[in-house]
Structures are given as C-alpha cells and as structure tokens.
Simulated scan of single mutants.
Amino acid sequence: MTKLMRELIERLETLPDAEQDALAREFLSVLEGEVYVLTPEQEEEVRKALEDGEPVMEEEEARRFLRGLGA
C-alpha cells in the first residue's frame, strides 16, 4: 500500500461511520467503472462556480449531501 493510500485511510477512519460508508460506496463505484454523468445544467453550474472562484456549498452542506448519498 502506498503512503498516500495509508494517509487517505487514516483520514477516513476519523469520519463518522455513515460518511465512511458513503465514501466507500463512491470509491467502489469508481473501481467498478461506474461513471457519474453531469446533466447540462449541472455542467453549467460547475463552469460558473469555477469561473467565480466561490465555493458552491459550505463544508457542512457538502457533508450533508455526501451523507445523503449513503442513504
């Protein structure tokens, strides 16, 4: 196992179980070749967010979103 992978796992271990599970599902889907495709509207939102340099959502909002993926 690489040093970077060990660091990732150590950081993941500090998260609540639900967040760990949500992230694990995402990692597994990537390994299995699943690809999430953005809608044109989502692509536009990302483009605008990158242009203005402002975060799309606050950290806690992102955590709630990620927890929802595991539900």
Results as ranks from 00 to 15, higher is better:
Glu7Arg: 07
Pro40Glu: 04
Gly33Pro: 06
Val56Tyr: 08
Ile9Val: 09
Val35Lys: 12
Met1Leu: 14
Glu32Leu: 11
Lys48Asp: 05
Arg25Glu: 04
Met57Arg: 15
Ala18Met: 09
Thr2Asn: 04
Glu44His: 13
Glu10Asp: 12
Thr14His: 11
Ala49Tyr: 13
Val30Trp: 13
Pro40Ala: 10
Phe27Asp: 00
Arg11Met: 06
Lys48Thr: 07
Tyr36Asp: 08
Ala24Phe: 09
Glu13Trp: 05
Ala18Gln: 14
Arg25Ile: 05
Asp52Ala: 10
Arg6Ile: 00
Glu44Tyr: 08
Glu19Thr: 08
Val56Arg: 15
Gly33Val: 07
Glu32Lys: 11
Glu44Lys: 15
Met57Gly: 02
Lys48Ile: 10
Arg67Thr: 01
Lys48Asn: 02
Ala62Gln: 06
Val56Pro: 06
Ala18Thr: 11
Glu43Asp: 04
Met5Thr: 03
Thr14Ser: 07
Leu23Glu: 00
Ala49Cys: 02
Tyr36Leu: 06
Thr39Glu: 06
Val35Phe: 08
Gly68Cys: 04
Ala49Gly: 11
Val46Gln: 03
Val56Ser: 10
Phe27Ile: 15
Glu32Ser: 01
Val30Lys: 13
Thr39Ala: 04
Ala62Glu: 12
Leu38His: 07
Arg63Asp: 01
Pro40Tyr: 11
Ala62His: 13
Glu51Trp: 06
Lys48Ser: 10
Leu38Val: 01
Val56Leu: 15
Glu44Phe: 11
Glu26Arg: 12
Tyr36Ala: 08
Leu28Pro: 00
Glu26Met: 13
Val46Met: 09
Ala49Gln: 12
Glu51Gln: 09
Gly33Ile: 14
Glu60Pro: 08
Val30Met: 13
Met57Thr: 08
Glu34Trp: 09
Ala22Leu: 05
Lys3Gly: 02
Val56Glu: 12
Gln42Tyr: 05
Thr39Trp: 12
Leu66Thr: 04
Leu31Asn: 05
Val35Pro: 03
